[in-house]
Write a protein that binds this DNA or RNA. Structure first.
Lengths: 244, 244
DNA sequence: CGCTATTTTGAGATGGCTCAAGCTATGTGG
DNA sequence: CCACATAGCTTGAGCCATCTCAAAATAGCG
């Protein structure tokens, strides 16, 4: 029957953990799931491009997606990295405008999509979805405001430290020796997240490596000492090795 | 009876223009209005402080309010300026967290306030309010993202130009000779909006004044040539005087 | 095994910050 | 109504964090 070739179920076990659908009964989630269409994109491909009229709101189910915003002059900013369970494209759909950024899969990725009208209908029927959406957007605003302040008032090294920690929290995988950022992340990506250049990021990572804070490879970042980075991000006195 | 000493009505003519309540019938707006309480604060006073648990969502009816975010290190960022009709404090109430910024009246100001539960109840009853709120938040996110990119990729002068233009659009008053920013705005305020220092802003304004773009006084800014500023903000070739 | 993307490193330039000092409106109390 | 206090603004000089540009090293990938 109408069955997607999904990974491990024809049910909506995945949606259980999606905060947009929190508070729905299983049967309701099932209905929401039925209304979705499934989309898979290759590494490097886009779910949507910046400027395209927004039609679909996605929830990522597999992979990692970057939201890039391009300035009129062609400079890129990496607004955020989406991990499974998170919403993307929603802002544009809800405000009825064009996508303000492009969504690029950094690894092979899959998502569920609902077009604007469908989602409006679902929200109508299940106000909990609208409430959740409000809460999610409000949280996004708070985070954005904080990052805005960070960018406005803090030096590069600290911004990079914050960005790395944020990534670690979002998409870090515990491995022996530390926390590994779980997708290919280049110096240039980090630069685009923090408003600096890839050269400066490279130098900073080298320095951190010397200090034993991280282990940085080609598109790879292992955080050996989250504490050390937190200290940097918050400008604590650089943690003495052996307090007397 | 229970009548506020409001400026010119016991009705809700004001709410008509508030986008949060767009789409409500007059009677419904009336009910919304009944549920509000009225609050006036003096110049320099705060509607709420940063970190305070969020209880009330406001719509400004009179005056101008600044939303300031303070960094842990004590540096200030001016996130936005609220003009009558706009919502503030809503993000914190909707996400159920503490206010992420302080709201300071830059001139004597008045607002209508609803506490979180009341607003939740109203949204329940009138889904249009929830829809409007979603749209408003989505628009805020878009604006913030854009400003984030601006801060990340553009030089100070251009950022200041953009900030001034934004203010002019929001709260500019046409007067003879140009557009006047309609509330006291210091060099330091502009610096806090654009992530720079008051010294740099001062120099930039002086330069613009020499070029005839603006007229800058003590906490006063008159834009003589919006076009010139737009050119700066967008890095067009600096508008030739007389194209041959 | 060679090609290409990524990263490192150096050297030099500079935009904007910092600090210090003086200036000037504005409002206030005598 | 004046003189003074104050908050806001200007200006200079020096510095430095970060950017730029150039070039070489490295690592994957096909």
């Amino acid at each position: 029957m109408a069955e997607h070739e999904s990974h491990q179920s024809n049910d909506s076990p995945l949606l259980e953990t999606v905060s947009l659908f929190q508070g729905l009964a299983p049967a309701e989630r099932q209905e929401v799931y039925q209304a979705a269409h499934h989309r898979a994109v290759e590494k490097g491909e886009l779910f949507f491009v910046q400027g395209e009229e927004a039609h679909t709101l996605y929830v990522l189910t597999q992979g990692r997606v970057r939201l890039n915003q391009l300035s009129p002059e062609g400079e890129q900013v990496l607004l955020r990295v989406i991990v499974p369970g998170q919403l993307f494209g929603g802002v544009a759909v809800l405000s009825g405008t064009a996508y303000p950024a492009a969504a690029e899969a950094v690894v092979p990725s899959e998502a569920l999509g609902w077009d604007g009208e469908t989602m409006a209908r679902l929200m109508e029927r299940y106000p909990a979805i609208a409430r959740n959406a409000l809460r999610l957007l409000a949280e996004r605003i708070q985070e954005l405001q904080e990052r805005y302040r960070e960018l406005a008032t803090e030096r590069v090294e600290r911004r990079v430290a914050s960005a790395v920690l944020r990534l670690a929290r979002q998409t870090g995988r515990k491995v022996e020796g530390g926390i590994l950022i779980d997708f290919p992340l280049s110096r240039e990506d980090l630069a685009a997240m923090t408003g600096t250049t890839l050269y400066t990021v490279s130098r900073i990572l080298k320095r951190w490596e010397k200090e034993g804070l991280v282990e940085a490879g080609r598109q790879r970042l292992l955080i050996r000492s989250p504490h050390g980075l937190v200290a940097l991000a918050e400008d604590l006195p650089p943690a003495l090795e052996a307090p007397s």
